[in-house]
Each structure stands twice: as structure tokens, then as C-alpha cells.
Write a protein that binds this DNA or RNA. Structure first.
Lengths: 218, 218
DNA sequence: GCGTAGTGTGAGCAATAGCTCGCGTTTGCG
DNA sequence: CGCAAACGCGAGCTATTGCTCACACTACGC
């Protein structure tokens, strides 16, 4: 599997080919979703798109390029979905702790709930080129920074290290929603999970640090 | 890739063959660790073990059987490592909240820290046959049950639904340690992460549920 | 010593993957 | 029109993989 360029080989100029490219991307999503990465062959993708294998390689130089395009699309959607939330957190009427957390968790669940199987293939099963890895790390850092700023502005928050707390929040929400959506637990409704997650994060962030805690009230 | 039996084809009787089997398993671990699942070919595994490809297939009927053996071994190690902890939680001198959580998180981190790359291949990248899936779910449930019992016995704990809380704890610890070990964050030492995780869980479990909370005591 | 079960070997088979390339068709445009 | 560029096609090439099988060697009970 020699490293091949991941950039498109030919840019679609006419409307016809733009449709082909779009059909290929959607077909790839469906095929990866159903068959996983390894069994999601380029021939199958082309067939699903109703296009010949030759056409596929006109626009995507390799199988991994298709995967990367899919990730790119997903990341773009994620950024778009989270942008208003970021604005809200940073805005003048910054929300309270629970409301902000609730919105964050809800947004993340919504983001993952769309196509969980595809998401699993994209972010777990498939090999991740270093460039992509850096990109995603950057996004996580950006999110953590935004949340850290919000935490610092939030009067209810009492954790000692907002940066660390923010990263932990991002990490936790990411992990929980991820596994929650990919491997849904049957014995409690999803709403109960999200509520518990919010409660956990809120309790942590509002808790007085152990070191300077007074003798337990009551 | 026809579904092939995952049971061993031939049982090793003599010491010589037992060494071969062991060498193959360790070689498989190293190869999967370095090359991932797809590029971890059976020929490479055999070569790494210093054994012919034929010998490999004498004892492992398929590539997936090797993977399963590896998972089995990892699970067994995990059970062994967690058994004393379970005894402690259930015992007469049951530990306090923070101590128990601290031990739990530490044990999980230790469990994952051993061979993170291999762990990733085993539990993320590779296909998981349903039988294995059920096995792992069972383990998680078992762990959650043990923790739920402990939580119910713990006077500090005030959450309304100990079962749900226990599952959330398992899920969170699993997720956090997992990602923490596989993608270590550079800007804070691991100890800070585990401490923060423990603090988060403790705060959540000891927090008075929102519904019946008194006006915040100063 | 001898036979049998256990063990080890590696060339090579069948299947399948990603991908190429020569050629036919359609589109845009003067 | 006519023509060049864009587009689409799919048989099939090359490489690789999981795995088989016919055979040779080793250990051990008798």
C-alpha cells in the first residue's frame, strides 16, 4: 500500500461530473457504513454510485483519499454545528453551568447520532494519516480553549485548573457520546445518560477543591 | 473471507509445540502492534515467530483466531488484575469513595498502559465477532454490578440511581483511560489526569441530586 | 529398532484487492 | 457543424493475502 497522493486527480468542471463526485462520496459513506473499511472496496463504492471504477479514480486518486474526503466533510459539519454554541458560550449573555453543559452534550450527541457506524469506521477502524491526526487534535484543543474561557467566566465554577478541566470535559463528552451512540446501552434511555453526564460534569466543575474544603456541611 | 472456525485446529501436546504456540502469540502481538490489523499478515507473524507459515495454521485455523486468542489473553489478565479490587470493594472493610475510585482508575490505567498500540488494534481497529462482543459486554455489566453494590453500601454516595451511576463510572473510566493511554496528552502529566478523573467521579457521586437540593450552603 | 502420532516445512494456489489505460461518448463553444 | 476537452467506461494487470497440502523430521511407547 504505497503512499499515494491524497489530493484529487482531476477537478470536476461540468455539472455532470460534479454529480458523479457527489454520488461517489455518498456511496462511499454508505459502503463504509455497511461493510467497514477493509470490505469497503473501491469497486463496491463505484458500483453503489452507479459509476464505473475508472470514473472513481478520475476524481479520487486512492481509496484513502475517499476516506479523507469523508472525514473532511464530517469535520466541516461538526464545525458548523458547534459554531453557534461557541458563540453562545463566549457571548455577553454567557449561559450558566448546567445550561451550557446541557447544550454541549446535546450538540455532541446530535453530531454523532447521525451515522454512528460510519463514524466508527472513520475514526476508529480506518488508518489515520498523521496530517488528519494533527487536524483533529487542533480541533479538540480549540474546543478546549473555548470551554476553558467560558469556565473562567462562569461564577459557579470552582475548579483549580480550568484548562485541565476543559480538556477533561471535552474528553469525557467526546468519549461518552461516542460510545453511547456506537454501542447504545439498552437498559436506560439515552436521555438518562445525557442527564447523568451533565450532572457529573456540573458536580465536578462546581465542587470545591478537596484541599481547601471546609468540614462537610450538615 | 469465509467464516472459519475460531477454535484451535490441533492441541499442542509436547513442550516443543507449546513453545511454538507461545512464540506465535507473542509474535502476533508484536506484529499487530507495529503494523496494525490489516498489515499484520499471517506470513509476517510466522516469520517474526521464527516458524513456518504451515506451523502457524497447525494451531490457529485463521488469522482471526490469533486475534481472538490475543483478546482472550488480555481479558484474562484484566480479570486477574481487577479481582482483588472487586474483593476489596465488596469486603467488610469497604473503602471510602475517593479511595475506591482512585484504586479503580489506577487499576484501569495500569491495565491499558501495558501495550496501548496493541490494545487499540484489538479493541478498535479489528473486526469484533459477536461472540466476543457479548463476552465484553458481560464483563462490563459484571463490573458495573460490583460497583453499584459498593455505591449502595457507601454512605457518602447520594446519587438517585446507583445502577446508572455505576455504568456511567465504568464507561467514563474506560473511555478516559483508553484515550488517555492511546493518545497521551502532552500538556499535563498523566497523574493530573487521573486525579481530575477521580475528582470528577467523586464530586458526581457525592453530590446531592439537583431535585432535592437545599439553597446552596454558602 | 520400529511404528505412530506429533511437529515442522514452504512452494504455491485461489481469491481478491487497488488501480491503469486505451478507447468510446458527451459537452461546451467558435 | 466541428473539434478539443471533459467525462465515462470496464476488461484486466499487478500485487498481495489468507491459507493448503504433500512431504520430511522428531519424540516416545513398545
Amino acid at each position: 500500500m504505497p503512499t499515494r497522493s491524497l489530493r484529487a486527480r482531476r477537478q470536476p468542471r461540468q455539472a455532470r461530473s460534479r454529480e458523479t463526485v457527489e454520488a461517489l462520496l455518498e456511496a462511499a459513506a454508505q459502503v463504509f457504513e455497511r461493510h467497514g473499511y477493509a470490505a469497503g472496496t473501491t469497486n463496491r463504492i463505484a458500483a453503489r454510485a452507479g459509476v464505473s471504477i475508472g470514473s472513481l479514480y478520475q476524481y479520487y486518486p486512492s481509496k484513502d483519499a475517499i476516506l479523507l474526503a469523508l472525514v473532511e466533510r464530517h469535520v466541516a459539519e461538526g464545525e458548523a454545528a458547534l459554531a453557534p454554541l461557541a458563540g453562545w458560550l463566549a457571548g455577553d449573555s454567557s449561559p450558566g453551568l448546567r445550561d451550557g453543559l446541557q447544550a454541549l452534550v446535546a450538540a455532541m450527541v446530535a453530531l454523532h447520532a447521525d451515522r454512528p457506524a460510519l463514524h466508527r469506521v472513520l475514526f476508529e477502524e480506518a488508518p489515520r494519516p498523521p496530517a488528519l491526526r494533527r487536524r483533529l487534535d487542533g480541533l479538540a484543543t480549540q474546543a478546549a480553549d473555548a470551554i476553558a474561557a467560558w469556565l473562567r467566566a462562569c461564577p459557579e465554577v470552582r475548579v483549580a485548573d480550568p484548562e485541565l478541566a476543559a480538556r477533561l470535559v471535552v474528553q469525557t463528552v467526546e468519549s461518552i457520546t461516542h460510545t453511547l451512540v456506537i454501542h447504545p446501552a439498552a437498559d436506560r434511555p439515552p436521555a438518562a445518560w445525557t442527564a447523568a453526564t451533565v450532572a457529573m460534569l456540573a458536580a465536578y466543575l462546581a465542587a470545591v477543591p478537596v484541599d481547601d474544603r471546609h468540614p462537610a456541611p450538615r
